[in-house]
């Protein structure tokens, strides 16, 4: 199972969340998985992640929080693991 790196950017002002997520996504290795908790849906981030070539998926929670998973190219985790990691907003 890939190593999970987690951080919470909910209390950072823009563009700090973007900077931190891009920096972490850029250095992801094939056996690492990034899980980020944000207070809002960071729409400008997704095209940047696409251009980096990393995989990503997110879930919007009723509280407004967003959980985002990012993985290195060709290192997608299993569906079950994605669902498990997205289920909780903490």
């Amino acid at each position: 199972m890939s190593e999970l790196i987690e951080f919470d950017v909910s209390e950072l002002e823009p563009p700090e969340p973007l900077i931190q997520i891009i920096a972490a996504a850029r250095t992801l290795s094939a056996h690492q998985l990034l899980r980020v908790v944000h207070r809002r849906d960071p729409l400008p981030l997704y095209p940047l992640l696409d251009e980096l070539g990393v995989g990503h998926e997110r879930r919007l929670h009723p509280s407004g929080a967003v959980v985002l998973l990012i993985w290195a190219p060709s290192a997608a985790p299993s569906r079950t693991r994605i669902e498990d990691l997205l289920a909780d907003a903490h």
């Binding site: 400008p44 095209p47 696409d50 251009e51 990503h56 997110r58």
Partner: peptide, 12 residues
């Protein structure tokens, strides 16, 4: 949820 739809080509 996927995040397709927004790309930099579509941002002015």
């Amino acid at each position: 949820m996927r995040t397709d739809g927004l790309s930099f080509d579509r941002i002015p």
